[in-house]
Amino acid sequence: MARMVALVKGRVQGVGYRAFAQQKALELGLSGYAENLPDGRVEVVAEGPREVLELFLHHLRQGPRLARVEGVEVSWGEETGLKGFHTY
């Protein structure tokens, strides 16, 4: 089990990106959250099996139809026991 923190930049606020991330995470059985940051990026934190997180990351790099993802900065760590997947 692992923890992934992804900082997503581009046109990712106001286009349904957090809801998209939540839907994909729940489909994949991941826990975590997605949150808008003041600088226009979205922070996505997810926990689960590393190989499932890699698949989730692929989806995050695509984003929903109205988004334009310009880059994703990713860091990895150990899970902390998050439950459910929330948006803020």
Rank of each mutant, 00 (worst) to 15 (best):
H59S: 06
V74Y: 04
G32Q: 03
V74G: 04
L82Q: 09
E54I: 11
H59P: 09
A25C: 10
E35F: 06
Q23G: 11
G32L: 03
G81M: 15
L53D: 00
F20Q: 03
L57M: 09
A25S: 11
L7G: 07
A19T: 15
V74M: 08
L57Q: 01
K24C: 01
M4T: 10
Q23M: 15
W76Q: 14
R11F: 06
V74I: 12
Q13V: 04
A34P: 01
L7Q: 11
P49C: 09
V69H: 00
T80D: 09
G71E: 03
E27A: 14
E27I: 13
A21P: 00
T87I: 15
G29E: 15
T87S: 13
R65G: 10
R3N: 09
L53S: 03
F20V: 06
R41K: 15
G84E: 07
E51N: 13
L57R: 02
F20K: 03
T87W: 07
E43D: 05
V15Q: 06
S31W: 04
L26C: 13
V8I: 15
W76N: 14
E54D: 10
A67C: 09
F56A: 02
S75W: 09
R18N: 01
W76D: 15
G48A: 06
E70D: 11
E54C: 12
V42Y: 00
S31Q: 07
S75Y: 07
P49R: 13
K24T: 04
G10P: 06
Q22D: 05
R41C: 00
G84W: 06
M4I: 15
F20M: 05
V42R: 01
L7S: 12
F85T: 09
L53T: 00
E35P: 06
E51A: 13
E79H: 10
G29I: 11
R50E: 13
G63F: 02
